[in-house]
């Protein structure tokens, strides 16, 4: 009986992790198409409206993937998330800051999607302003993925994040250099931001989530809360999930973390 429950939960956990990464990749692709779409593809034979439709299609697909990511995380009994957590970023116990960033990013993204679907009926500037929220949302998504994700210690996943970051930086710079965006000052500011923010994220990532010891932080800080609430379940959940990522190293480091506290 216990095994029968454990297997689907394990499966849910795999789906949560993979759909999160896929959603991130898709949203990155949509962002790049959106950024470059404003850049006019004058030389390209293909009708440019196809890029606009591709942008929309990929963005919607990414949103669906994100929904899968969130639903499987909520349904997974080990996460103790509950349905309200989809719209309430506060008060999570598992890696609260990075989870809150993910939840807030999803809610804002939902606003972007909804206003885009209703675009025809809205003032242009309103739609546009809300659309720009995607930039901070995307950055929040990166930090959420790196900080919450148990896969951030794997080289292949790190490369995935680095490539995604690099592509967006290149796309933003291509647009900034094309002179499409406002004044020169605005362009300079945007270009600097587009370099500074990813650089900061990378520095943080190399000092945090990319290290194999990253997950032990949370176990040590959380086990206090767990012992006061007296719930043993959450400890075993952490062990199961960390263990399922196949890193023997991890369970050792989390044990060390628990002993510290």
């Amino acid at each position: 009986m216990a095994a029968a429950i454990a297997i689907p939960s394990q499966l849910l956990w795999y789906v949560t992790r993979s759909s999160g990464l896929i959603a991130f990749g898709l949203i990155t692709a949509a962002v790049v198409l959106g950024v470059l779409g404003a850049e006019r593809f004058r030389t390209i034979e293909r009708p440019r409206i196809h890029y606009a439709e591709l942008h929309r299609g990929i963005a919607l697909f990414g949103t669906v993937m994100l929904a899968v990511h969130i639903l499987t995380a909520v349904v997974d009994p080990f996460t103790h998330l509950g349905w309200t957590s989809i719209f309430d970023p506060f008060g999570r116990t598992y890696r609260p800051l990075y989870l809150a960033l993910g939840i807030a990013a999803f809610d804002l993204l939902l606003a972007v999607v909804v206003t885009s679907l209703l675009r025809k009926h809205l003032p242009l500037t309103l739609w546009k302003c809300i659309h720009f929220v995607v930039y901070p949302v995307w950055v929040a998504g990166v930090v959420h993925g790196l900080g919450t994700g148990t896969d951030s210690k794997f080289l292949i996943v790190q490369i995935f994040y680095l490539v995604n970051l690099a592509i967006v930086v290149v796309a933003v710079w291509a647009r900034v250099l094309s002179g499409d965006v406002g004044s020169r000052l605005a362009r300079f500011g945007l270009g600097t931001l587009a370099l500074a923010v990813p650089a900061l994220v990378m520095i943080w990532a190399y000092r945090g989530p990319f290290l194999p010891s990253w997950s032990s932080h949370f176990v040590s800080s959380r086990s206090v809360a767990v012992s006061t609430s007296g719930s043993q379940k959450q400890v075993s959940h952490e062990a199961t999930h960390e263990g399922s990522s196949g890193e023997p190293n991890d369970s050792r480091s989390s044990e060390g973390g628990s002993r510290d506290s």
Partner: peptide, 10 residues
């Protein structure tokens, strides 16, 4: 209708 949906400037 497709154009109306996607015209960047509405």
């Amino acid at each position: 209708k497709r154009v109306e949906h996607l015209c960047p400037r509405l």
